[in-house]
Amino acid sequence: MSSSAVIYHIVGTDTDVGKTLATACLASALEQAGKRVAIYKPAQTGVGPGQPGDADFAAYLSGARAFEGSRASRPLAPVAAARLDGFTLPSLQKHAERIGLLSADYDAVIVEGSGGVTVDMAEGEPGSTYRPYNHAHLIELLTQAGHRAKTFLVARSGLGTLNHCQLTVSYLSQLNLPVEGLIIGSWPAQPSYIEESNVCALTEMGYRVLARIPAGLGRGFSAGESHDLLWPDAALEDFRVTAQQLFGALVA
């Protein structure tokens, strides 16, 4: 059964493009708007027991609550990581059910994918013909169940991003899944001609560049490598001020 909660999907053109920081900024802006926010990571990889994962980090920065669908220790795509750790990933239906339950308790649920949008977060029966089970298909399931969805695409700023953005948006469009706009996951303090040119080109192509997250905003966090989340209160406050400036208009 659907709810009044909005489900925000953070999808990426690739890995390490800034999805977790985009998730944290969006969650922080929603929290500051008085919303109760849950962050759900269907498939966390490369993180051991007790270590903070992407959802934990985003929740720490924003004040939201973190949830994971699965966790594997190897820094690989979810299917390969789960196989090496000896377990089977939850099905897309299980993820959809979990997100549905969260949407009953929270005003907003942010779902952060793994890697690029076509990376599988579930797999079929052993021996069956391959078919994709990725974040786009999870969005489809949730939409069919009546949930309100907004999808944001996170991309890098440098060379290659024009191709990656067009391919990703084209893939989502084939599934009739609209994208609200693009977020640059790490924008340098002194952007080069390449970065500035990319933003101009994306705008000319008809894409909405909604936000540019300043490089270094995450203060060096890396899932699987960072063990403690101990920012000074002033640094957390600075982050939340920046998040509001960047994403406040998106949640108004």
Rank of each mutant, 00 (worst) to 15 (best):
S114F: 02
R212A: 11
Y207C: 08
Y207Q: 08
G116L: 04
S128Y: 10
T161K: 09
Y133F: 11
N163L: 08
H137I: 00
Y106Q: 01
L162R: 09
G220M: 06
I110S: 02
H164C: 07
I194E: 12
L217S: 14
Y171A: 07
E125H: 09
V179Y: 07
W231N: 05
R156Q: 12
I110P: 03
R148D: 06
E112W: 01
C165A: 11
A223C: 04
F221Q: 07
A223Q: 01
Q166D: 14
C200Q: 15
G185K: 06
L202F: 13
T143H: 09
D120G: 05
S226D: 02
L175H: 13
Q190G: 10
P232N: 08
R148C: 04
S170A: 13
Y130A: 13
L236P: 07
R208A: 15
S157N: 09
V109M: 01
R219Q: 14
H164K: 06
L141P: 01
T118L: 12
L202S: 05
G224Y: 03
R208L: 14
L153T: 09
T168D: 04
L217I: 15
L229Q: 00
E204G: 12
C165S: 12
P132T: 03
S222E: 15
G185I: 11
P126W: 05
H135W: 02
S170Q: 09
S186T: 06
P188S: 06
V111Q: 00
Y130I: 12
T143Y: 05
Y106K: 02
Q190D: 15
S192N: 13
S173W: 13
I139C: 01
H137F: 00
P188Q: 06
L202V: 08
E123D: 14
A104R: 13
P126L: 04
A215W: 13
R131T: 10
Y133A: 04
E112N: 04
A122L: 03
P188W: 05
R148K: 11
V179Q: 06
E196D: 14
L236E: 10
D228E: 14
G224Q: 03
V179P: 07
Q174V: 07
L230M: 09
V109D: 00
G220N: 07
A223N: 02
V117S: 02
A136M: 02
E140N: 05
E195W: 04
A223W: 03
L182F: 06
H147W: 04
I139R: 00
N198E: 14
N134E: 01
R219P: 10
D228I: 12
V199K: 09
A136P: 00
A211I: 11
Y193T: 15
V117W: 06
S192T: 15
T129G: 10
L175S: 12
E180H: 10
H227W: 14
D107R: 09
L141S: 03
D120V: 06
E112H: 02
P178F: 05
Q144A: 11
V199D: 08
Y106F: 09
W187L: 08
L138H: 00
G158W: 13
S170P: 04
I110E: 03
